[in-house]
Design a protein around this nucleic acid. Sequence first.
DNA 1: ACGAGGTGTGTTATGTTATAACAAATTTAT
DNA 2: ATAAATTTGTTATAACATAACACACCTCGT
Lengths: 137, 137
Amino acid sequence: MLRMTEHANEKTMLTKNERLILESLSQAETPQSAYDLLDSVRDQGIRAPAQVYRALSGLMSKHLIHRIDSSNTYLCCQKPSHEHPNAICLAICDECQQVTELDGVRIGDQLEEYAKASGFESKLTSVELRGLCAKCH
Amino acid sequence: MLRMTEHANEKTMLTKNERLILESLSQAETPQSAYDLLDSVRDQGIRAPAQVYRALSGLMSKHLIHRIDSSNTYLCCQKPSHEHPNAICLAICDECQQVTELDGVRIGDQLEEYAKASGFESKLTSVELRGLCAKCH
DNA sequence: ACGAGGTGTGTTATGTTATAACAAATTTAT
DNA sequence: ATAAATTTGTTATAACATAACACACCTCGT
Ligand SMILES: [Zn+2]
Ligand SMILES: [Zn+2]
Ligand SMILES: [Zn+2]
Ligand SMILES: [Zn+2]
């Protein structure tokens, strides 16, 4: 971990492996699987899935990346400065794989309303839209 | 498969394995993994994952079951008569695992609106809310 | 009746995604 | 300095999913 003097901004508190994985993800043009990432950081000393999954897990809890459940892939958050929204909303193009992150606060609030009608108290919601992006349709 | 004379209602056109899996799923109290289902139908002649996955795949395309991407599990559709909505919305209790299916037409339309602002044309969206159900919170 | 085409089934093998468990190294706190 | 906490490296295994192929069965046109 980093020294105490660097604790100021919690978002920059990344471990070595988290930095490697985040760097690799940020250079990718499309969402990457954990094993894609493993391949791309092998030459930087990472050898086992567990190391990658630990880094991914840390980055997710810091809200710097998101996981796409429908494809078991990961991508950088496009709103890394946002307050943790109650929903993560990703519009994923089935043609070119580009992803656009939508406003998770607005959509999350709306969904929370709907759910509340059934007595459900939502904490964390995930929205994945599949279709065609502006370029592809 | 059934005879031609029974083709009338496409929703009842289930294969033997689809019927077995749907029956098993409908008796489960919580969402089941493919391997949970495999265990529960072993004594009815199903022996391999591929058979289960084929049945699940068929049932999903007939909109009789849904898959929960965040937990790799499957459950019966709670609105089996609904016209195929543009969104499947599941509110999943983290305490008791009960799932409530919300109105996918209404929510899907709303999300489609939001996405369109980014030029995205959505076809099929999935919403998974995590939290506590009415009983548990 | 026959054979072609389509669909469903059974089976084996393999591919893909993710975690458990533990020891060693490093960082931080006292 | 030493103890405590965290991060890392490593091996092994668990959990989830599909590929590929042979065979059975039904339907349809001849
Ligand atoms: Zn984000
Ligand atoms: Zn596109
Ligand atoms: Zn449904
Ligand atoms: Zn509950």
